[in-house]
Structures are given as structure tokens and as C-alpha cells.
Design a protein around this nucleic acid. Sequence first.
RNA 1: GGCGGCAUAGCCAAGUGGCUAAGGCAGCGGUCUGCAAAACCGUUAUUCUCCGGUUCAAAUCCGGAUGCCGCCUCCA
Length: 490
Amino acid sequence: MSLKIFNTRTRKKETFVPVKEGAVGMYVCGITAYDVCHVGHARAAVVFDVVFRHLKTRGYTVTYVKNFTDIDDKIIDRANKEGVGIGEIASRYIKLHDEDMASLNVLTPTVTPRATDHMADMIALIKTLEEKGIAYSVEGDVFFAVDRFPAYGGLSGRHLDEMMAGARVDVNDKKRNPLDFVLWKKSKEGEPFWESPWGNGRPGWHIECSAMSRRYLGETFDIHGGGEDLIFPHHENEIAQSQAATGKPPANYWVHNGFVKINAEKMSKSLGNIFPIREIVKQYHPEVLRLFMLQSHYRSPVDYSEASLTEARTALIRCYTALQQMKETRAMIAEPGKEKPTAGETQYTNKLDELKSKFDAALDDDFNTAQALGYVFDAARLVNQITMAEKKMPMPAKQVILATAADVFMHFGNGLGVFQSDPDVFFQVDRDVEVRKRGLKAADIEAQIEERQKAREEKDWTRADDIRQALALQKVTLKDSKGRTTWSIE
RNA sequence: GGCGGCAUAGCCAAGUGGCUAAGGCAGCGGUCUGCAAAACCGUUAUUCUCCGGUUCAAAUCCGGAUGCCGCCUCCA
């Protein structure tokens, strides 16, 4: 089974063939560090995290580069507003970004370069373009001449003349063509600047990625990713810059993730519907957000809402319930596994192995996490059957099967970046979050449970049920098992 | 105006030419339980927005209609 990736450039699923056998170079556009990351950033991060994880699962040595834009108008604005330097703003939001990513089980990329550390690379690249007559400078600004690059528009499927008709382009007298874009921007009074052959200024946004990807991954690498909004102009311009300079396309596969909408509306500052990651994870266990996004294909839009997060939470609880059952059942079994599995056992282990293969095949097919999750839920059901329903199964046999199941779930979890928590810890965190969200007091709840327990021991079922009903009104659900009562929030 | 995408059950969502149209949530019936919860079993789309066409065969390909969405301006 070979890996297939949908390539934005060709708009087709293609069989993945890396430039260098066994290795993959991947570049993903990271954030501009001027504010906290929101749910949209979370999606892009999770999507490419899954790509990163799956490529590793498939045995590739992956060099994953995700940059930070730490010089930009928005950063300067913010720095001016707060009266601090741009370095302080960038460092602050990069730190918060890293925390948010860690909370979502997003693996740290191999290299996380900052634009301001690569000024020399950018200036050199612009110089090359200027020498080739593709870039031109006007009074300290340097522009890329789009009509000098015939392939311009190849990624986004646009033609220069058609774009002119749309005419929503930047008005700038210095440009020869309104679609020309800035490579180097002359600094205004009081703005941070770097020295260059064109005078003091700062790099344009697009050139950063061309310079950094080339620095770490070479002239042509395998995968370039980002949000779908970056297709035009950002990635189009990156291709133009890199290819005009080197004569080679910078990347072979262009991968773009779909957007997160909020209650069917576009997320935007004006609508006031921006959800920071750090706010969401106060309301839901971080893996809930992750599972929510993984349930849809990465190229489809997803609609963020309370209801969909709640659904994802219930689904995640389903998985963790199976994992907890598995853990407890295995802990009960002292005997070591039998050496020769019987036919009854191989029936289960074969099924588990099959689900594992199907899971990998789903991810091989353009990272189809939704389909892969289908197999995860099938496996969860199977685990529940083994731990609960198959009571007659001899313990050593269960031991063998559940060991296999544990391995399979470990594989699922590593591939998708979920199930990274111990089940007991997961339920504790989930309950803490819910209790806080609803303004409940754990101690009060536990006192009532204790009172109910006494009633139950006296077989005063009416009293016990009254207490349970009172708790149910507060969305507290009780679960009576041997010797103890546990509780959770509905 | 240009470019592109989407439309599958009550809701979310896979599936892109041929086995019974995944899975999750919600619902209903049952098993288990003092009763519950969870879990398990069964059940919920003769059909994939509509109309034509291609084909032995279409949710899947082609044409058209309708509706929704994104990009073209900073944006994951």
C-alpha cells in the first residue's frame, strides 16, 4: 500500500514519491507571532502533526520545518501599542504558541526557525532575483515582477489577465504591475529595520518562507503545507520567488487544510468569534478538540460549535471507557499469557490486527483520519466485547488478547495524537473541567454520594434514588460498581 | 467579475464506478443491574439536492439547474 497525497497544484491525489528515498522534507507555514493562537491555528497544527506522525509511522526520516514570522506590520503595531520591542512581542507569543501546541499533543517540528534569524538568506535570495532581472527596486522597496515569471498562477489556477479584471489589488504607484508583490520593504521612521543593498528595511512576508525552506530543506523538497487561504497569494508567490531564483519548483506536493468556521460563520475579529486554544482547553479536555477536528477530512471545512465539541467529548469518553476497562481487566489478571492462542483467541487478535492495517491504509489514503477513526471505534467495541461480554473467556486468553489490543490502541494513539493520557487521569481532567464549567463543588457531590451509599447499604432504595435524582439535576451521573460508586458529569 | 469547493439518515461525517452506503452523536427495543449509568446485542438512508446523459453497472463519471461556502485584501 502506498501513500497518496492530494496535491493542490494538480488537484489530484498522487502517489507520494519523495525526492530522496526514505526521507521527507516538509515545510509548513507557521504563525505570525502577534497574538494568541486560535482554533484555526489548532486545526492546521493538528492536520500537519498527523501528516508528520504518519510519515514517521511509515518509516520515513522526516525533517519538518515550521517557521515563525517574527517581523511583520501587525507585530510592529502591537509593539508600538504596548511600548515594547518587537522581539518581546514575538517571543511572548511564540512561547504561548508552544504551550498551546503542547497541550494539543502536537509534536515539536524538527526545525522551528524565526524569520529575523535568516535576514542574510532573504537578502541573498532577493539579490539573486534582482540580478536575474525578475526583481526591481524603487526608492528602497524591492518588488517581484510577476510578468517575468510565466508560470505565475500555476498553483492557484489563476491567470494574470483574469486577476486584473478582479481589480481588488493593492494600489501602489511604485509597482510596474499591480500584482507585483513586495520582497523588501523600506522602513519608515521609527520602525525596526535591517541593513540591505537597498537601504534599511525589512523583508516581505513571502520571501521568508522561500529563504527558510531552502535553507533547511534545499531547493526542492517534498511537502509544503499551510491553510487553504495561503494558496493565493502566499504560496503562489513563494513558488514564483523560489523557482525564479533556482529554476526548480520548491516543493513537489502542496497540501492545504480547510478552515474552521464558527457556528457556520467565518471566524473573524469583526464578528468577535475568535476562539483561542487556551480558552477552549479550559472548557474541554484538549483531546476533545483534537478528536473533533480528526472526525472530518482535513480538506473539508469544519464547523466549530458547543454541540459538536460536546459530541466529540462523548465519543472520546467512549474510547477512554474502553481503555479504562482494558487497563482494569489486565490489572486483575495475574497469570502470564498462554503461549499458544486458541482459535477463540486468534479470532479477536486477527480482527484487531486487521483494524490496525485498515487504520494505516486509511491514513495512507490522503490522511483520511475520519475513516481511520471509524476503525478506532470498531476496535473500542471489540475491546468492550472482550472485557465485558466474553465473561466465559479464560483469563490467560484475555490477557493475550488485551495485550494485543493495548498495542493496537497505542498505535492508533500515536498516529492521531490522541489517547496520550492514562484513562484515570483523562477522566479526572474531564471531570475537573466540567465541574468548574458548571460551578459545582466536588466535595458536595461526594458527600451526597456517601449519604446515598449508606442508604444503599440499608437497602433504602427510595432515599438512594432520591439523592441520585437530585444529583442528576446537576448533570452528575453516578455509576455503581462493586464496592464503590464513581461519578462523572453528563 | 475571475478561480475553486461542497450538497450522503434527526444531527455530525467517511465513501468517488460493481460486495450488505463506514463511524460518531441522538432515538427506540432488549441483555446486564435493587433501580440506574456504562457496556453489549438488535434497530433507525431500497437510497446519496434536483433534472437529463454515458455505462451491463453511478452516491461515485459527464451536462444542466438549485442551494451553500471559500479565495481573489492581513489571515491557519
